[in-house]
Simulated assay, not measured.
Amino acid sequence: MNQEDKKIKARPWLHKWLRSTIDTSVIDQEELVAELRQSQKNNIISSESLGMLEGVLQVDNLQVRDIMIPRANIGFLHLNDSYHDILKTVMKAGHSRFPVIDENKDDVEGILLAKDLLKYVGDEESFDIDDIIRPPSFVPESQKLNTLLSQFRNSRNHMAMVVDEYSGTSGLVTIEDVLEQIVGDIDDEHDDVDEKKNILAQSDGRYTIQASTELEEFNEYFNCDMPLDQYDTLGGLISQKAGKIPRQGEEVKLNKFSFKILRSDGRRIQLVEVRRLEKL
């Protein structure tokens, strides 16, 4: 019995559901997604369930570089920062984990958990960052998200530094970033919606863009002239060009840009990767 058979045997309810819901003669992922979408149209599964199932399948195809927070957008701490400086940074950012560097951003010495600062409240003079930072985890840009998710689960780490082929820091990725590919955006009480960046530049000339980005913002950022007469958002324009809601992994070319769908739940596009065609 191979590993996949063991997984199915361990989850008989899932096997039974699949056999009763979809045509088990499908031979590839594309046909499976088509069957799942038909099941949603027939009201067998909800649109939310469809979106998550498509997200699960997409995790097998995406790489870390597709979802990582780029180096330029990381809030680093420094080994020689004082307790009060670190505390100010942590309170302003509202994150729970921070990479700690030495002299430059390629020298990640460890990860600081904000909760570990509590032990020094009222005893700031005894603060020594070396006593509380934890060993960093490193992953390559090319690592598949399903592998990364397993790594997070087995190591119980929630954050990993992303390195390029020269072992330089290119970004970071969290378990939340991976889970958002399945369930959609996860907002918590620390998220400031007004400050959320719609357009994130990657180090290799690509851009990760929220599909809800207003076309006026897109045009201003890229100094281009996407049409504004029919749609207000980038996702709406891409769907109109494609003549459908594109699936995750599909690419649409429009006005000297290539748009690769990173996340779509069958009802709308959520996240896209953008490249200028003249730079390909």
Rank of each mutant, 00 (worst) to 15 (best):
I67K: 03
R97F: 12
T21G: 11
A114Q: 06
D85W: 07
F76Q: 11
V173S: 00
L254M: 01
N2Y: 10
F218E: 05
E220C: 09
D204K: 03
G168P: 09
P135Y: 02
F257Y: 12
Q181E: 11
S25H: 15
T208E: 00
E251Y: 10
G168A: 07
L113E: 08
I27W: 13
I199W: 00
R71K: 15
L262K: 06
T213H: 05
A34E: 11
S150C: 03
V272K: 04
D23P: 01
I86M: 01
E251T: 09
V173P: 02
G249I: 03
A160E: 05
L148I: 07
T24D: 15
G94H: 01
L50H: 02
L148D: 04
I67R: 05
H78F: 13
L50W: 07
K105L: 10
R19S: 15
L79I: 00
N219A: 01
L14H: 06
K88E: 07
V183M: 09
Q3D: 14
V272Q: 03
V274F: 07
E103L: 12
S96D: 04
L87R: 11
Q240V: 06
T147S: 06
R263H: 15
I27Y: 13
L113S: 01
R268I: 12
L18P: 08
C224G: 08
A114R: 03
Y83N: 04
F138G: 00
K253R: 14
D188V: 13
R276E: 11
S47L: 05
I186A: 05
I245R: 05
L262Q: 05
K197V: 09
Q181H: 13
I269C: 15
E165S: 04
S150L: 05
E125N: 11
N43Q: 15
T89A: 05
V64E: 00
Y231T: 09
I133E: 00
Q240D: 15
I132P: 04
I22P: 09
